[in-house]
């Protein structure tokens, strides 16, 4: 057990899975010779060779399709995009071919799409987006969104062993965070050997009685900070990290809302079309009688992601916005 970075956790998962199963291979731009845009696969090509760490031409649709074709014949490809935003090049491959394949009775497609996502210091409109909003409505895709190094390693291993296509969202912001700088609930030691984190199990980052705060991805940070602020004001907030969006841990969500009676949903993506809308609908449909206040959501501004620092700051959900929403809910 040790404290390692999110990036180191991802690298360890890939390395161990490649050692374990020769059908696992990596494909993407600059991942071999260059070690990847974010150096997650640094040194891999030296160890595993050019056949298993494939430097693809600049052609996301082409190499995504090729990876899917390889998966059809029993390989277990892990596809890396330099930035999650570039996955838009590949929609037909993922949404139309891979996602529906098992439903069409044409066999499993065991493949992982690694998407370095979300905002990171003025990435601008094409290097900052939250891709879950594009895939959440497509049957047949699992969506994982690890927020800790522990989950990054265990969930990536789980994704590689899963027989379904997995949209694996990585948070660039977390790659380099030093474990000692993270809030305690996110500072989790990572086992050196093999373990997996099953999909569909949310993690309660902080227990509370008065309010439920559902979140995932980068905004676990704002959620925990805001919960701390509310605690100093005498309000107890339960913070839940969903960890996977498909499958969704509905039971954990409903149980928490039954307990607290109040719900705030927080994510970095915009509210419109965001996953939060579906979460709110599920809660309203299934435990409406337990609600003591209207469901609230906090997300990004309804615009593309702007680049200039003051604009980007205004676009993103902040701890202050979360605190304000929590206070309103507490007072309701």
């Amino acid at each position: 057990m040790s404290l390692i970075t999110y990036r180191e956790a991802l690298s360890a998962a890939l390395w161990e899975e490649m050692e374990r199963d020769e059908n696992v291979f990596l494909i993407g731009e600059d991942i071999g010779l260059g070690g990847g845009a974010f150096y997650v696969t640094k040194g891999f090509q030296q160890r595993f060779g050019r056949d298993r760490v494939v430097d693809a031409p600049l052609s996301e649709a082409g190499f995504t399709g090729a990876a899917i074709g390889a998966a059809l014949t029993g390989m277990r490809p892990v596809v890396e995009y330099q930035f999650a935003d570039f996955v838009t090049e590949t929609f037909k491959m993922i949404v139309d071919f891979a996602a529906g394949n098992h439903y069409r009775r044409m066999g499993p497609v065991p493949i992982v799409f690694r998407l370095p996502a979300a905002a990171l210091v003025s990435g601008g409109p094409y290097h900052s987006q939250n891709p879950e909003i594009w895939f959440f409505g497509t049957p047949g895709l699992k969506i994982a969104a690890p927020a800790t190094a522990y989950d990054a390693k265990g969930m990536l291993k789980q994704a590689i062993r899963d027989d379904n296509p997995v949209i694996f969202i990585e948070y660039k912001k977390f790659y380099s965070y030093r474990p000692e700088d993270l809030p305690a609930p996110l500072r989790i030691e990572v086992p050196e050997g093999d373990y997996t984190v099953p999909f569909g199990q949310a993690r309660t980052l902080r227990e509370g009685e008065d309010l439920t705060l559902l979140t995932f991805g980068t905004t676990v940070l704002e959620a925990l900070e805001a919960a701390q602020v509310l605690e100093s004001e005498g309000v107890s907030v339960e913070v839940i990290d969903l960890r996977t969006l498909v499958p969704l841990d509905k039971e954990a969500i409903l149980a928490s809302v039954r307990k607290t009676g109040k719900l705030l949903i927080l994510h970095e993506a915009r509210k419109r079309g965001g996953v939060g809308g579906e979460l709110a609908a599920i809660v309203a449909e299934e435990v409406f009688e337990h609600l003591d206040a209207p469901i609230r959501r906090v997300g990004a501004a309804e615009s593309p992601v702007p680049l200039s620092p003051p604009l980007e700051k205004a676009y993103l959900p902040s701890t202050a916005k979360v605190v304000e929403a929590l206070r309103e809910l507490a007072a309701f």
Binding site: D51, A61, G62, F63, T64, G65, A66, A67, I68, G69, A70, A71, L72, T73, G74, M75, K92, M93, D96, F97
Partner: peptide, 14 residues
């Protein structure tokens, strides 16, 4: 779309 898929099937054969 199927030409990249076919290339991937050929890739695994290779």
């Amino acid at each position: 779309t199927m030409v990249p898929i076919a290339a991937g099937v050929a890739w695994s054969a290779k």
